[in-house]
Nucleic acid binder design. Structure first.
Lengths: 202, 202, 202, 202
DNA sequence: TATGAATGAGCTTTCATTCAT
DNA sequence: AATGAATGAAAGCTCATTCAT
């Protein structure tokens, strides 16, 4: 019978393509209609599958699919951000790069970011692979490094990291309310905000 | 039968009590299990009602119930915040009071705040009475006043207001990740953050 | 407790008025939305009652209410038709009067007629007091009398009566498809139709 | 899951059989209990399905099922009538054939006809594919042709067509009141009726 | 690798009616 | 004469998932 694909064998080309197609459809559906409305039926419809059975076949269950969505978007985001923060030499520079990269990503990859936020804010859905702190930790590291290097003033790195993350997430939300909002302006405002907020007080 | 109550008649004592009981149960259910899982069945179970029919009896439909949830929590929040910001004389003071009041409220009324965020982040649910900008506007006003009075530096009031709002909402989220988090410390950090971020540069 | 009014006592003025108000609302609701949609809730809403309880109070059950609707409209129709057929001396004249009276009534009392047809065609609803044949019998009598008097040709009076009744009912239906349809023209066409169809063949 | 089947793919043999089985059960249920009582539950029970879910699986929604019922019965009727009117050379002959065919069909396929009338008289249910005038038009065409050919007298073809249709529909109704009613006798009476009613007056 | 078929549980909402003053 | 409160049953529909090829 074999309800699902065998999990120990590596994925074939066809299977990978199908999975990608389904994940793509899931991302678009979540971004467009919200997480709650992203049923297998709607995802299958968007992916133009004849039946939702194909989703159940390629993914263990819904959680498996959503996890894949999150992993995919998150790794793209991390790569995008990583590339742009890597060359920085100061914590201040790293923070600015981190902020600008995140906002740029959210601006150019709106669908992916919409899906990601859709999943995260939905609640009641716990992705085993991803912990809340795991997202914060890269920022926290930048902040701690900056404090250790004497670039930043004393503050609770965890709270500051949370604030940074919230403001980054704030861009897509602000976009919904103000569709014409410019990513660059938003980024500059936020960069300045945290520059002043973290600067050593003289 | 009275499919649902007439809306022009004032609510009787009993009806008010029942509605309150149901709204309370809805708040707790949303806060605990998330918006998506807050079905009539679960709400009725928590309120120890004989059937979900009693909910349909007292509320026009689910939207009506959820709206009541939001209105109730939001007005409590507004009153709490309003009382604490009213006596302030400076924009700086108002901003601090606003931040502390919001965080305190989120700390002491965690269930209510959890429900509120649960509804807002669920998406696809539009409360007619509440607009996105309506939540931001009180903060924006404080910020604009502070700029006009020369207390604050030049910045985009809308973006700064969004940042404030995101950081305020960030407290319940941070709580989930760090249950022992102290509201006072969080508030002080955030107050300092925005104090520095809005201060006129010398 | 007394769930319903006592049934052995004669109706008071107030009670009669209330019943009339409810029956009126039921008629309008059925005519406008159809029999299937004429729930107690909708009827109560149209009658501007605070609760459907008032309907249950004044009528034993739904069947009781609908029976009252039918009886009321039917007796008005019978009176209208009776008055106009009474003075006739020939069967031919009686038939024409019957046809014109019915169509006129359907034209001027569209709401009542709509409700009546709504109930009759709904099916599954048997009014004890009214039998199918009871409606046909006055026409059948006219037809039989005409045959006995030698005015009409030989035909099955029951089938002809059914045809007459169907054509009379056809006017409201035709009205729905052609709102501008003139009652007089329709009546004249139908009168001619049955005049020719019943006339003795030479 | 396949919430409901894709519509572009042709139906498989099994699916066609299931759909047919369900439509058949729906027809019988409507004919027996009336349209209002034809719930998914009752239809599933009659079709001996494990649950109503199977109906939702094979039909988009209730409207889809009912439409299929109507289309199926109506096309059978049309074919039956079409075959019998096709060979006629005169309008008079066509009218007689039309009348006899309809009444015969209603007599031999009582269940189907009962379902059809059940749906049409239920009201509030609009089958997109079928318009009121669409049913009348074939009769109207016969009548107009007969007038053009000088076979029929002058009359309003629309009203006469409506009368024909009402009398045709009248047979099943008459059957309910007089179960022993003979279709042939009824047909002959109606044929004579309209023969006389449409004949040129000398 | 894919798919058609089927399923049980759950959802919100509406129904006419009854309980208790 | 009226009413507020409550109720069980049933409705149509959608959910993710499993069965069987």
């Amino acid at each position: 019978m074999e309800v699902n694909r065998a999990c120990d064998t590596p994925l074939s080309f066809t299977a990978t393509a199908r999975r990608g197609q389904i994940v793509r459809a899931a991302i678009e559906t979540i971004a467009e209609h919200g997480f709650a409305a992203a049923s297998f039926a709607r995802i299958a419809e968007r992916a133009e599958l004849s039946s939702t059975r194909l989703i159940s076949y390629h993914f263990k269950d819904k959680k498996d699919l959503i996890t894949e969505v999150v992993v995919q978007v998150l790794s793209a985001l991390e790569e995008y951000v990583g590339t742009r923060t890597h060359g920085t030499t100061t914590a201040r520079g790293a923070l600015e790069a981190y902020l600008r990269a995140n906002i740029e990503f959210a601006d150019t990859r709106r669908t992916e970011m919409g899906a990601l936020l859709g999943v995260f804010t939905a609640g009641g859905f716990h992705i085993d692979a991803i912990e809340h702190d795991q997202v914060l930790s890269p920022i926290e590291r930048i902040l701690r490094d900056g404090q250790a290097a004497g670039e930043f003033r004393a503050f609770d790195p965890y709270v500051m990291a949370a604030a940074v993350q919230r403001c980054v997430e704030g861009f897509p939300m602000a976009l919904e309310a103000r569709p014409g909002l410019d990513a660059d302006s938003y980024a500059t405002e936020i960069v300045t905000l945290f520059d002043l907020a973290t600067r050593r007080t003289s």
